[in-house]
């Protein structure tokens, strides 16, 4: 099996693969070809798969992500209502109070009542908004009583996951082929959103993530989980998620981390508890065997 990223997926965990040449050898096509491709795109003749247009925040698959989504929509609609009123007044004034329609300027320029009103009313709206916001924030920050802890470590440019106390750890790197990035091969649906090793987690469990980094600051973000936290070298940040539905949830590094920043996706696969335990067991024995230097034999014996 060919891995586009050019890394050996069977490399033993714990050893940092050399990624300095992540994009070094990108086959950049000559300018004319690129220009032709641009024109092709303009004419609608794209060689790539099209995912659906997305215009809004995903509702997500955790109680927190749904709270955040509801909060987002609440503020959005409040802004829309204020916007309709404010812009309505502006356009009314533009249409009705124009000199060309014979409008004569009145000279009023003060009203303490109005000033007080449009100070107090927005303030009250803000107080109203701050209550659900604070409530959700308090919940988000409470990562106590977790069922599983995963340490997520950022590297330039990949992630490392360690299931704390489970003896399972591995790197997770972009698996989109370079040829797709360089526009030689077609791009599939998961372009820039596919990794070699997914982070597999159980559904219905409170998963606590510990974030840190080995080089620069990264930020581990999965929109569907409403989880985004900076990975800071020398420090540990925590947050958590309880995923309701099995599925694959994709995200990206959100903090500029250098040349490969756009190329370190996050892929989380949520499995039912029993399947997760099975996966964990297999992963653990595979890693122990690999650590013992006998990976090939174990793989053969277990029929993989």
């Amino acid at each position: 099996m060919r891995y586009g990223g050019g890394w050996d997926p069977a490399a033993p965990a714990g050893e940092v693969p050399d990624l300095t040449n992540l994009l070094e050898n990108l086959d950049m096509r000559p300018f004319t070809t690129r220009a032709a491709a641009c024109i092709g795109i303009l004419l609608g003749a794209t060689g790539t798969a099209h995912a659906d247009w997305a215009v809004n925040m995903p509702r997500g698959v955790t109680p927190i992500s749904r709270d955040v989504y509801d909060l987002h929509m609440l503020i959005f609609w409040i802004c829309v209502i204020i916007g309709v009123v404010v812009f309505g007044l502006i356009f009314w004034s533009i249409l009705r109070h124009r000199k060309s329609k014979g409008a004569v300027a009145s000279q009023f320029h003060e009203s303490t009542t109005a000033e007080i009103a449009w100070t107090i009313v927005p303030f009250l709206i803000l107080v109203g908004m701050s209550v659900p916001a604070a409530k959700t924030l308090v919940e988000m920050e409470d990562s106590s009583d977790s069922d599983l802890t995963i340490t997520v470590t950022g590297y330039q440019w990949m992630w490392h996951y360690e299931y704390v106390g489970e003896d399972v750890e591995f790197y997770s790197k972009l698996s989109t082929p370079r040829t797709a990035i360089a526009n030689i091969d077609a791009k599939d649906e998961d372009y820039l959103l596919a990794v070699d090793n997914r982070l597999v987690v159980p559904v219905g469990k409170k998963i606590r993530f510990q974030h840190t980094s080995e080089d620069v600051i990264h930020s581990w973000w999965v929109p569907d989980l409403s989880v985004k936290k900076d990975a800071i070298p020398g420090y540990v940040n925590t947050n958590w998620a309880r995923i309701d539905e099995p599925g694959v949830y994709r995200g990206k590094c959100a903090e500029l981390c250098g040349r490969g920043h756009g190329f370190m996706p996050v892929v989380v696969e949520a499995l039912p508890e029993d399947e997760f335990q099975q996966w964990l067991e297999e992963k653990r024995s595979a890693q122990q065997a690999a650590a013992g230097g006998d990976a090939d034999r174990v793989a053969r014996l277990s029929g993989q």
């Binding site: 790539t48 798969a49 099209h50 995912a51 659906d52 247009w53 997305a54 215009v55 809004n56 925040m57 995903p58 990035i181 791009k187 649906e189 998961d190 372009y191 820039l192 959103l193 973000w221 929109p223 995200g251 990206k252 590094c253 959100a254 500029l256 920043h261 756009g262 190329f263």
Partner: peptide, 15 residues
């Protein structure tokens, strides 16, 4: 909102 980070030179296809 749909999930495109800033400061990336390349993006996935829904964008």
């Amino acid at each position: 909102l749909a999930g495109m980070p800033r400061r990336i030179p390349d993006y996935s296809l829904q964008f």
